[in-house]
Simulated scan of single mutants.
Amino acid sequence: MAAITLQNVSVDIPILDVSSRSLKNNVLAAVTGGQIKPTAGSKKVTIRAIDNLSLDLTHGMRIGLIGHNGAGKSTILRVMAGIYEPTAGSVKVEGDVAAMFDIGFGMDPDASGWENIILRGMLLGYSRKEIELRSEEIGLSTGLGDFLSMPLRTYSAGMSTRLAFAVSTSITPEILLIDEGIGAGDAAFLQHAKERLRSFIGEAGLLVVASHSEELLRQWCTTGLWMEHGRQRAIGPLDEVLTAYNDSLSAPAG
Rank of each mutant, 00 (worst) to 15 (best):
residue 207 L to N: 00
residue 70 G to L: 12
residue 160 S to I: 06
residue 34 G to R: 01
residue 194 K to D: 14
residue 7 Q to H: 12
residue 18 V to T: 11
residue 11 V to P: 07
residue 93 V to W: 04
residue 149 S to R: 14
residue 203 E to L: 12
residue 136 E to C: 00
residue 222 T to H: 07
residue 253 A to R: 12
residue 10 S to W: 08
residue 34 G to V: 00
residue 80 M to Y: 04
residue 73 K to M: 11
residue 253 A to H: 12
residue 201 I to R: 02
residue 128 R to N: 10
residue 178 I to T: 03
residue 109 P to V: 09
residue 163 L to S: 06
residue 6 L to Y: 08
residue 182 I to P: 14
residue 104 G to K: 08
residue 102 D to P: 04
residue 187 A to T: 09
residue 160 S to M: 14
residue 141 S to K: 02
residue 22 S to A: 05
residue 17 D to V: 00
residue 6 L to W: 05
residue 169 T to M: 03
residue 250 S to Y: 01
residue 119 L to F: 03
residue 97 V to E: 12
residue 103 I to A: 10
residue 113 G to F: 11
residue 47 I to V: 11
residue 241 V to Y: 10
residue 55 L to D: 03
residue 189 F to R: 05
residue 101 F to I: 11
residue 219 Q to H: 13
residue 134 R to P: 09
residue 239 D to L: 11
residue 73 K to Y: 13
residue 9 V to F: 14
residue 12 D to Y: 11
residue 254 G to R: 10
residue 94 E to S: 11
residue 93 V to R: 06
residue 90 S to A: 15
residue 238 L to F: 05
residue 78 R to T: 03
residue 224 G to P: 08
residue 136 E to N: 05
residue 143 G to A: 02
residue 238 L to N: 09
residue 181 G to E: 01
residue 51 D to H: 11
residue 182 I to E: 06
residue 129 K to Y: 06
residue 57 L to T: 02
residue 41 G to Q: 10
residue 252 P to V: 08
residue 130 E to F: 06
residue 251 A to C: 06
residue 240 E to D: 15
residue 49 A to R: 04
residue 20 S to N: 10
residue 101 F to M: 14
residue 99 A to S: 14
residue 166 A to W: 05
residue 129 K to V: 11
residue 106 G to T: 11
residue 5 T to Q: 14
residue 76 I to C: 15
residue 249 L to R: 15
residue 180 E to V: 12
residue 59 H to W: 01
residue 123 L to Y: 07
residue 44 K to N: 15
residue 35 Q to R: 15
residue 80 M to E: 10
residue 185 G to I: 11
residue 1 M to A: 13
residue 157 A to Q: 15
residue 188 A to M: 13
residue 30 A to Y: 00
residue 35 Q to W: 04
residue 139 G to T: 07
residue 243 T to E: 14
residue 153 R to F: 13
residue 17 D to F: 07
residue 231 R to K: 15
residue 18 V to L: 13
residue 60 G to A: 10
residue 19 S to I: 00
residue 61 M to D: 07
residue 46 T to V: 14
residue 123 L to M: 12
residue 143 G to C: 02
residue 34 G to S: 01
residue 134 R to Q: 15
residue 61 M to N: 05
residue 91 V to C: 13
residue 82 G to C: 02
residue 203 E to H: 08
residue 47 I to K: 01
residue 161 T to G: 07
residue 178 I to D: 01
residue 16 L to N: 10
residue 16 L to R: 15
residue 48 R to T: 13
residue 128 R to E: 14
residue 154 T to E: 02
residue 208 V to I: 13
residue 12 D to K: 03
residue 218 R to H: 13
residue 61 M to F: 01
residue 151 P to S: 08
residue 238 L to A: 05
residue 60 G to K: 02
residue 15 I to H: 00
residue 192 H to V: 06
residue 100 M to N: 01
residue 125 G to M: 01
residue 125 G to P: 02
residue 100 M to S: 00
residue 93 V to A: 03
residue 90 S to I: 03
residue 204 A to M: 02
residue 245 Y to K: 02
residue 33 G to Q: 07
residue 69 N to A: 09
residue 42 S to K: 06
residue 24 K to I: 12
residue 86 P to S: 01
residue 50 I to F: 06
residue 102 D to S: 15
residue 85 E to R: 15
residue 173 P to Y: 01
residue 84 Y to I: 13
residue 189 F to S: 04
